[in-house]
Design a protein around this nucleic acid. Structure first.
Length: 865
RNA sequence: GCCGGGGUGGCGAAAUUGGAAUACGCGCGAGACUUAGGAUCUCGUGGUCGCGAGACUGUGCGGGUUCGAAUCCCGCCCUCGGCACCA
């Protein structure tokens, strides 16, 4: 046998064995506890990147560990296969998106296999398979039936680069597209007819359950709560002057209603134009609305933007005071939030304050803070805090917090409004003006209007022959055979919807489909879904904190209502792994540079192109545009999959960002080699030797080594359970170091051989989840047959980890002064006595009065004097 | 501005319940082996002072609680991320 570590040979060998024996295939089994482990599935972009390697390495540790712990582990993999890049490839390289996608899948699948991940490949599917998306079309129909899918004309986000609409969740806070284009000009607004999913119907439930997901990271839940954005307040009706109509307003500060002196409408508010009609203000209002329309929404609504507005010429009345309130149109009011109209209380709202100052509008103080006397004349900013109500009729003297409740009730009793809750969350816009997606199963008939495709006519298959232009209109609109159809109602001529569904729809339920990917009588086989769901552990990037994770929670609620799933929440535990980062080289003139384009001289780095100084050291997420990617392919080729896996797991804990380090990779490779060498140095003498039974009484070096072995089992087990893979690996390293320095491995008596065998065998078993190929190879070399996956995870011998002696730290006044080794059996008084007897301690406390002696059993004695 | 992470050696990091700060790895230094090694094995490695035993100091900063604080409390600073003219 080749005694050198040759990753290529052994990795190919074991991957074939795993595949041939279908070791990771699972079926429902009621005799074992189930464990559904899932990592976010990849988009088949061409080849895997380091983020995938990290994500899937983390998952694979857990999968293999749980198998060995006796769980029935579902660990599947699929492809999030619809989406933009396939169409771009079509435009750039003239290749059909389907061909491009399926070829990428083949290639990436092969890469994942070469990483040695333990997937049940029999469950694989791609979301662009008709057999997958047809069920999604069924969901759409059911949602349409229940009013959960609807079409409306609205102002939507438009990405110039993707040439399609984006959902609110898909626009980043800097106004760019979630896909992170290199030179993103920012999203713009368009008014379009679009399909929406009514996620807002579940806003309250989605929010409430955030507090019932203890297995989720706090920061993800916080982000979701922020995104849903619940505000508790009141709705108030302001009657229009000389009219029966009212303007509805949402406010969280109904306690300040007596101070409302004017009204602000969003430019898009339907009343804005109609109120000014026929007044001298009409032209000005029209002009202002036009101007707002042209302006970028992000800029218009930036906090720093100057308050702008125009008087409509109309008035409404304060329902509490009867005061005449001029109605304005203002740039800072958003049509999408609340009612699109805001009662303006300049004294207690900074925006209204600025607006009132600019237009010289009246100001009345209605909340008086403790110990101050606010005067509208002298106020330099609004007072937004709490206080005692004044100028508020029957509510004078009331605490502002209590007044909110009282005024809401008052409004309700008189039909002037009432309690109201508002959410920031908007409905999910799912129409995409793109080809490579699931067609929306809707038909438009001239006579019957919008008609859903009958269930029996599903699937609406995405046609193959399409010209892809990327020009901002669905390419499907150009496919006559697709568009032109008959109305299922009247049989007359009709046209199909040509937009496709957002790809986030596919990823909102793929985890359910894994339970029954071969089921064809319906979308989900309830019995099997009930067996596997919910996902016990979900692992993926933090970038989906809102997007995919919120959509999936929404979809789960919908599918539960339809009776296809039984769970409220799809993912019991969530692990969000950090990004893989590497330093970037940036030249002020030439932009980002590859490392080879940089000349390094100690602290100074120069650009090879222009000779200018380069800034280095900044760590950024690996990305092509930043020119700081490392191709996993290179790692597999040069070091093997085991090294790549181990580096990702060892360099930092899963939730943290991982800083790339070439030397770190070398270190991991070196460790594997170190284990390999040690193993084959010992192996010839250990053949046929058996480990010691539990409870064996040993002494001296033998006991020390065996104790380290069992302590390591304990530590690694606990660390895997709490996802501290980096410390689990370091514990194994310690054991390896201990074997290296232990003399026991050189002795030839039976006990020494057995202790050594147990130690090295333990290293192999504990390494399996992290570096499975190496572990399998060494396991086989130990004379065992069959995969380690079929073996039990080792238990530690409680007898072996017991300490006979303990190191006691002695402190004087909390400072470390000495340490002594004592038999573990010593009682409190004995330990104290020995501590006080120490030579160094005696010197230190000489002549001082001992006030107290604190003892932490088996750890330390602190003498206070 | 609000909310949430995080800040520990030259670097990645560890310390699970308030009990030895810096495990493990990288880097660096010394030694062994060697014709040689950038391979391998062993040892050392927070800072200051000291020949030394040792002393002092040290987990972003300032206070506090405690016999004892990286860990708990109060007040700041920096940094990353989310939300943000949200009524």
């Amino acid at each position: 046998m080749d005694r050198r570590y040759n990753p290529k040979t052994i990795e190919e060998k074991w991957q074939k064995i795993w595949e041939d024996q279908k070791l990771f295939k699972v079926t429902e089994d009621s005799t074992k506890p189930k464990y559904y482990l899932l990592e976010m599935f990849p988009y088949p972009s061409g080849k895997i990147h380091m983020g995938h390697v990290r994500n899937y390495s983390i998952g694979d540790v857990l999968a293999r560990y749980k198998w060995m712990k006796g769980f029935n582990v579902l660990h599947p993999m699929a492809w999030d296969a619809f989406g933009m890049p396939a169409e771009n490839a079509a435009i750039e390289h003239g290749v059909h998106p389907a061909k491009w996608t399926y070829e990428n899948i083949e290639y990436m699948k092969n890469q994942l296999k070469r990483m040695g991940f333990s997937y049940d490949w029999d469950r694989e599917f791609a979301t662009c398979d008709v057999s997958y998306y047809k069920w999604e079309q069924l969901f759409f129909l059911k949602m349409y039936e229940k009013g959960l899918a609807y079409k409306k004309r609205s102002i939507v986000n438009w990405c110039e680069i993707c040439q399609t609409v984006l959902a609110n969740e898909q626009v980043m806070s800097d106004g760019t597209c979630w896909r992170g284009h290199a030179d993103d000009p920012g999203v713009t607004q368009r008014e379009l007819d679009q399909w929406f999913f009514k996620i807002t119907q579940y806003a309250e439930d989605l929010l409430e359950w955030c507090d019932k997901l203890p297995g989720w990271p706090e920061r993800v839940l916080t982000m979701q709560k922020n995104w849903i954005g619940k505000s508790v307040g009141a709705e108030i009706y302001f009657p229009l002057e000389n009219s029966k109509e009212v303007i509805k307003v949402f406010t969280t500060r109904q306690d300040t209603v007596f101070g409302a002196t004017f009204m602000s409408l969003a430019p898009e508010h339907p009343l804005a134009l109609s109120l000014s009609r026929g007044t001298p203000q009409e032209e000005a209002v029209k002009h202002f609305i036009e101007k707002m329309k042209r302006q970028d929404q992000l800029k218009r609504t930036a906090e720093t933007a100057e308050k702008e507005g125009v008087f409509t010429g109309a008035y409404c009345l304060n329902p509490m005071t009867g005061a005449r309130m001029p109605i304005f149109v203002a740039n800072f009011v958003l049509m999408e939030y609340g009612t699109g109209a805001v009662m303006a209380v300049p004294t207690h709202d900074q925006r209204d304050f600025e607006f009132a100052k600019k237009f010289g509008l009246p100001m009345i103080v209605v909340v008086q803070p403790n110990g101050h006397n606010l005067n509208p004349e002298t106020m330099s900013e609004a007072y937004e805090g709490e206080g005692i109500l004044i100028n508020s009729g029957p509510f004078n003297g009331m605490d502002s917090i209590k007044a909110r409740e009282a005024i809401a009730r008052y409004l309700e009793e008189r039909g002037l409004g009432g309690k109201k809750v508002s959410f920031r969350l908007r409905d999910w816009g799912i129409s995409r003006q793109r080809y490579w997606g699931a067609p929306i199963p809707i038909i438009y008939c001239e006579r019957c209007g919008t008609v859903p495709v009958p269930e029996k006519d599903l699937p609406v298959v995405l046609p193959f022959n399409v010209e892809i232009t990327g020009m901002g209109k669905s390419p499907l609109a150009l496919v006559k055979e697709f568009v032109e159809t008959k109305c299922p109602n009247c049989g007359g001529p009709a046209r199909r919807e040509t937009d496709t569904m957002d790809t986030f729809v596919e990823s909102s339920w793929y985890f359910d489909r894994f339970a029954c990917p071969d089921y064809h009588e319906g979308p989900l086989d309830k019995k099997r879904v009930d067996y596997w769901m919910p996902v016990d552990q979900y692992i993926g990037g933090i970038e989906h904190a809102i997007l995919h994770l919120l959509y999936s929670r929404f979809f789960t609620r919908v599918l539960k209502e339809f009776g296809w799933v039984s769970v409220e929440e799809p993912f019991t535990n969530l692990l969000t792994q950090g990004m893989v980062c590497k330093e970037v080289y940036e030249c002020p003139k030439d932009g980002y540079l590859f490392p080879e384009e940089v000349e390094g001289q100690g602290e100074r780095f120069l650009c090879k192109k222009c000779g200018g100084k380069i800034s280095v050291g900044r760590l950024e997420k690996m990305s092509k545009s930043k020119k700081n990617v490392v191709d996993p392919e290179y790692l597999i080729e040069r070091y093997g999959a085991d090294t790549a896996r181990m580096f990702c797991l060892f360099a930092s804990p899963p939730e943290k960002d991982l800083d790339w380090s070439d030397q770190g990779v070398e270190g991991s490779f070196r460790f594997i080699n170190r284990v390999w060498r040690l193993f084959f140095e010992l192996e010839p003498r250990l053949r046929g030797i058996e480990s010691l039974p539990f409870g064996s009484a040993l002494e001296g070096e033998q006991r020390t080594l065996r104790q380290k072995t069992h302590k390591t089992i304990k530590k690694v087990t606990e660390d895997i359970e709490r996802f501290h893979f980096n410390t689990a690996i370091s514990a194994i390293m310690e054991l390896v170091n201990e074997i290296y320095v232990s003399k026991v491995k050189e002795y030839n008596d039976e006990i020494s051989l057995r202790v050594t065998r147990e130690a090295i065998e333990t290293v192999v078993r504990l390494l399996f989840p992290f570096v499975p190929h190496v572990a399998e190879e060494l396991w086989e070399a130990l004379g065992y047959q069959g995969s380690l996956i079929k073996t039990q995870w080792p238990d530690y011998d409680p007898e072996a980890v017991k300490e006979e002696e303990v190191l006691i730290v002695i402190q004087v006044n909390g400072k470390l002064r000495d340490r002594i080794t004592l038999p573990a059996s010593f009682g409190e008084e004995e330990v104290k006595a020995w501590a006080l007897k120490s030579e160094r301690i005696r010197r230190l406390i000489e002549g001082k009065e001992i006030k107290r002696v604190i003892l932490v059993p088996r750890k330390l004695v602190n003498i206070v004097c």
